[in-house]
């Protein structure tokens, strides 16, 4: 197991190098120098500031050298400083934003799993029933629904029309004046819409996947063996079929990470949530190159870690892989 883990981690190294390379390349597609842009945005910066910056970022050197400088800094955990007014270290900004996005996505994934697994199991065990057909329709609509539009509709209904939930943000204006319980409730209220909506698309995908995974398992021979023992349908479904059907879901969870992180841009922008997505979006608008590169590298590392974690979980959950 340990060996497996080590080989897998070793396999990630070339990918990580590739990730930094692509991120670097993307940014250097830019026609002008990033410093020009930065000084453009900041009228106070004179030519000497520009020169200092060029030195700091090594922009006067050829591209391969620049890449080397940047990567060796990265390797030491130095992501550089933001181009924006505050000039704060990129890593600090990411450290603030990351937990918010992670928490949001973990919560919505938890909800998705709690809903999608029962839906998928039901549809598969009641194939072609009314409920199954309704699920199929729901899934198709879910796939086609633009998440930001769904968010707008929900805001329109729950916040504007009914006035039950706040439109955006994580805290009310009077948050600090509230009691402890009140504060928790306040944040919870702000989280309901973003959490539910960002899970919506995954919900459709996950229920569909769960359904076909379950259908696949149900027609396996060992399910007939279980029935031939005289087990009731519940036991057959939950003890014999579900366990097997859940295995591919683990992989899907790993694969859905980039989508979730990518989707956080829109969700966090709509609901004004200070997470990675909004941080990235702001860095885009500000052409804050160090931050853009930092977030790109960080998000793809998250993806890699997520896939690795999923593979490990699979290896633990599937006895056929456990002993390797």
């Amino acid at each position: 197991m340990l060996r497996y883990l080590l080989t897998r981690i070793a396999g990630l190294v070339p990918l990580l190098i590739g990730v930094t390379f692509v991120s670097f390349l993307v940014i250097n597609l830019a026609p002008g120098s990033p410093v020009e842009l930065m000084t453009d945005l900041n009228p106070k910066a004179g030519p000497e500031v520009q020169q200092r910056l060029e030195k700091e970022y090594g922009l006067d050197k050829p591209l391969p050298v620049q890449y080397w400088i940047w990567v060796s800094k990265l390797a030491r955990g130095d992501f550089g400083r933001s181009f924006q007014q505050d000039r704060r270290p990129v890593l600090d900004k990411i450290k603030e934003a990351l937990p918010v996005t992670l928490a949001l996505n973990v919560m919505s994934l938890a909800i998705v799993l709690c809903v999608a697994i029962p839906i998928g199991v039901y549809s598969a065990t009641h194939q072609y029933s009314l409920g199954d057909r309704a699920t199929t329709v729901f899934v198709f609509v879910g796939f086609a629904m633009p998440s930001f539009w769904f968010a707008l509709l929900c805001i329109l209904f729950f916040s504007v029309h009914l006035g039950w939930l706040p439109i955006s943000g994580l805290r009310s204006f009077d948050h600090n004046a509230l009691s402890d319980v009140g504060r928790v409730l306040d944040i919870a209220k702000h989280l309901i819409l973003p959490v539910c909506i960002s899970g919506f698309t995954s919900l459709a995908a996950m229920s569909r996947y769960m359904r076909s995974s379950m259908l696949e398992v149900i027609r396996q021979d060992y399910i007939n063996t279980a029935r031939a023992k005289g087990l009731d349908e519940r036991t057959v479904t939950f003890r014999h079929a579900l366990r097997n059907a859940l295995l591919p879901i683990i992989t899907l969870l790993g694969l859905s990470i980039p989508g979730l992180i990518g989707g956080s841009v829109i969700m966090e922008s709509i609901f004004a949530i200070p997470g990675m997505g909004r941080l990235f979006f702001q860095s885009i608008l500000a052409r804050d190159y160090p931050l853009i590169m930092g977030v790109l590298v960080m998000s793809s590392m998250l993806t890699l870690i997520g896939n690795l974690a999923a593979d490990l979980m699979y290896a633990v959950a599937d006895p056929r892989l456990r002993k390797r």
Partner: peptide, 24 residues
């Protein structure tokens, strides 16, 4: 019927490779 299955009438299948649940 379930009380009968596996108790009074039992069955074994053609494919031993796929007839047992892999995770149990």
């Amino acid at each position: 019927m379930r009380a009968l299955r596996g108790n009074d009438i039992a069955m074994i299948f053609q494919e031993p490779m796929t007839s047992l649940n892999p995770v149990l």
